[in-house]
Amino acid sequence: MADDGGRSARVTVVGGGVVGLTCALQLARAGHTVEVRAADAVADTTSAVAAALWFPYRAFPAESVLRWGARTLTVLTDLADDEATGVRLLPGTVVHRTPEPDLWWGEAVVGHRPATPDELPAGAPAGTRCTLPVVDMRRYLTWLLAACRSAGVEVVTTQVDRLSAVPGDVLVVAAGLRSGPLLDDDTGVPVQGQVVRLADPGLPGWLLDEDNPAGLTYVVPRGDDVVVGGTAVAGATGREPDPEVERAILERACSLVPELRGAPVLSRAVGLRPARPTVRLDRTLVDGRPVIACYGHGGSGVTLSWGCADDVVALV
C-alpha cells in the first residue's frame, strides 16, 4: 500500500455497529477493498438501541466532536430525502435548567432559537428549539448494511479476540467497548442506558431534558413508535431492563409529555454506550501493521459517525 493514497489497500474493519459500518462504506467508496468483522448482527448491536437523535452526548473533546458532528449532520440531513434510510428531520426542544446553558453544539445547527413558553413542557424554565435528524435505527442499520454490500464490502460475523488473527494491509478498530482490550487500552467505560419503546400517539417533535432533577429524560418519536429514555449509569454492565427503572423513566417522560400516558409498550431494551475520556481516532503500528483506532464515542455514535469515517479514510 502506498502512503500517498494513490493505491488501494485491503482494509479490515473490526466492528459492525454504526461507526464500523460507516467507516467501511466510506473506505469502499474511496477505492479500498474492505471486509468487516462483526461479533454481532446489526440488530443486536448497541447502535440498534439508540433513540437516535443527532445530538452530541458524553463524547469529547468538544472541538473535534463539533467538527465530526457538523459533518454527520450534513450527511444525515441529505439522507432524510431518502425514505429508505429511516432518517427524517424533526423539530424539537432541548430543555435548559440553568441560567446560562452552554450551547456549544449550536455552532453546527442552523436556525436554533430560544423556545417560546408554549413550546416548553410543564416545569421547564427555558429551552432551545431546533430541527434535527431523527434516525430509526432498525431501518437505518439495514440501509447502511445494504449500502456496504452494494459497495463491495464483505461482512463476516465473527468475534475478534486478537488483531494478529485479522487479515488486511490496514486494520480499523471500531468495535465500541470491545476496542480497548484489542489495543491494550483500559480507559473505556460502559455507560448503561435503558429505554422503553411506546406506540407513537402522533407526537409532533422530540424532547431532550438532560438536566431533569429526576434523571435524564428524552422522548424521540419515530412515526411507528417513540423511544423514551433514559439512564446513564457509568460502569454498569447489565443488559436486562429493570422494571422499576422503566417505571421511573415513564413517569418522568409522561410528566413532560402527557400525551404518552396510556400509550402501549411495544418493546424495551438496554444498551451499553462505549464511553472514554476522549474519542480515540488515531493511527498506530501494531506488529508493524497500520491500525486505525476509532472508538469511545459514548452516546454519540450516530452523531459523529460520518465525520469520524472521513478521518479514518484520510488516515488509511
Rank of each mutant, 00 (worst) to 15 (best):
L183F: 00
V195S: 11
G180A: 09
P213Y: 14
S179M: 03
A175P: 04
L208W: 15
P181G: 04
D186K: 01
A175K: 08
L208P: 02
A174H: 05
T217H: 04
L208S: 05
Q192F: 02
D185Q: 06
L203S: 10
Q194N: 12
A175Q: 04
N212H: 15
V173H: 12
V196N: 07
D200C: 07
R178F: 04
L208E: 10
L177R: 02
P213F: 13
V196A: 13
L198S: 11
A174T: 03
A175T: 03
V219D: 05
P201K: 08
G193D: 04
G193L: 07
A214F: 01
L208F: 15
Q192D: 01
L207A: 10
L216W: 14
V173L: 10
L208R: 12
P213L: 06
T187V: 08
D186G: 11
T187R: 15
L216D: 09
P190D: 00
G188M: 14
V191Q: 01
V189H: 00
G202I: 08
G188K: 00
N212D: 15
A174L: 06
T217W: 03
S179L: 04
W206C: 10
D209L: 13
V191A: 14
R197D: 13
P204N: 07
A174K: 03
D209K: 11
P201H: 07
P204K: 09
D186W: 04
D185S: 09
W206L: 12
W206P: 06
V189C: 11
V195Q: 01
P204A: 15
G205C: 13
T217V: 11
D209F: 14
Q192P: 00
D200P: 05
E210T: 14
R197Y: 00
L182Y: 03
A174P: 05
D200M: 10
P201I: 12
A174M: 05
D211L: 15
D184T: 11
V220A: 02
S179D: 03
V219N: 10
G188V: 04
V219T: 07
L177H: 01
G205L: 12
G205V: 09
D184M: 03
L182K: 02
L182C: 06
V172W: 14
G202Y: 10
D184W: 01
Q194I: 04
D211A: 15
E210H: 14
L203K: 11
W206E: 10
